[in-house]
Design a protein around this nucleic acid. Structure first.
Lengths: 198, 198
DNA sequence: AGATAAAATTGAACATTGTTCAAAACTGAG
DNA sequence: CTCAGTTTTGAACAATGTTCAATTTTATCT
């Protein structure tokens, strides 16, 4: 039995991430307690800190999984014909994922690094993967755009859609009612697409 | 001396809000401590709770002031000629305010009600005032739009711009570099304006 | 199998922070 | 000056992230 230790450790790690994800999805990041996940997986409080650096680290793992889920959820949307239909489908797909996995999705943006700095590179790589889904279509829309300019335009595009979805779903501010979000997204994407060809 | 008590109370209240705003601007919402503001104004810890319901209540007061500051900062921008110049100026003015008052501005969106519900009506009214700055120009852009549809379109518009500014300034994710934000905003507003006339 | 050293796990203890509340200090009318 | 009402105080409490010395488990060697 060579990898017995390694194996148990890996299982524990996965259990902890799973329990953390479940707790976050159930009550949001603010209701997330170290003692709860410890109880959920049946280990001691201190054990969490033998697997993860701290709770932030654990949350980052959950966020990474959420980003992968989001990617899987958007992938089928990617091979649609025109840029307009593709970008509309991506925006609405994003909104649908956010609504269905609200608390986990929210944790992606609620969470802050302890020092206020950027997320670690390995997590940003997940973001990057998703942003690349946009570039293809935006490039088709604005042929002159390439390289870094294209990358930045994709970030702008995502941020705009995210803002609309975020403020609407969070309901803390004056956002769109749920039944209007999808249409407004369609109109919005249509406007930006129409205004992009120059 | 009739209003002596009332007067001191009012001064204490203003001091507490001021100290809280300073603390938030200095270190962000996460570095905001009840004991710090108490020390700052030279009162006991418990005194805070005789003026405000809880810390959330105090934070809401700070946020209300921030929204008013933002409104004052955007007001001069409002009487520009074309919708495109006005909306560009508003978007860039929003970005400039956010950059200059980063932590206070961030607190507007970082803060969550304890129960996860919406902000109180009196705070939403401040939001509403700001959103109304947009409606005039959007209406000129899309003549068919009025009433509730116009209100919702203004929310969509704000949310999109906010998303771009927010993701860029927070730097936690893949946003725009500081020196590119203003140009991207100009392009973005140009695109939406160009695509709106139909 | 038994012994043993290394590794993993435990959970009590600690530090921090929001909140409460009985006691002390203060205020202003009589 | 007195005293009832009001305000302020800060010690105490509860919740929660984190640490670490002690205990338990595991893998290897004889």
């Amino acid at each position: 039995m060579v990898g017995k230790r390694q194996e148990k450790r890996e299982a524990l790690r996965r259990n902890l991430i799973g329990a953390a994800a479940a707790r976050i999805e159930e009550g949001g990041l603010s209701a997330f307690r170290a003692r709860d996940v410890a109880a959920d997986v049946g280990c001691a409080l201190g054990t969490i800190y033998t697997v993860f650096q701290d709770l932030d680290d654990l949350i980052l793992q959950v966020n990474a999984e959420t980003l992968q889920d989001l990617g899987r959820s958007l992938a089928p949307t990617s091979d649609v014909e025109t840029p307009k239909t593709a970008l509309t489908a991506l925006a609405q797909g994003y909104a649908r994922f956010a609504a269905k996995n609200f608390n986990r999705w929210n944790a992606l943006f609620d969470h802050r690094m302890a020092d206020g700095g950027p997320s670690p590179d390995w997590l940003l790589a997940h973001h990057s993967t998703l942003l690349r889904l946009l570039e293809r279509h935006i490039a088709k829309l604005t042929p002159g755009l390439a390289g870094e300019a294209l990358t930045l335009r994709a970030r702008t595009w995502f941020a705009a859609v995210h803002g609309i979805v975020s403020i609407s779903l969070q309901k803390r501010f004056l956002g769109l009612p749920d039944d209007r979000l999808m249409e407004e997204l369609e109109v919005f994407v249509g406007q930006v697409v129409a205004g992009s060809g120059r």
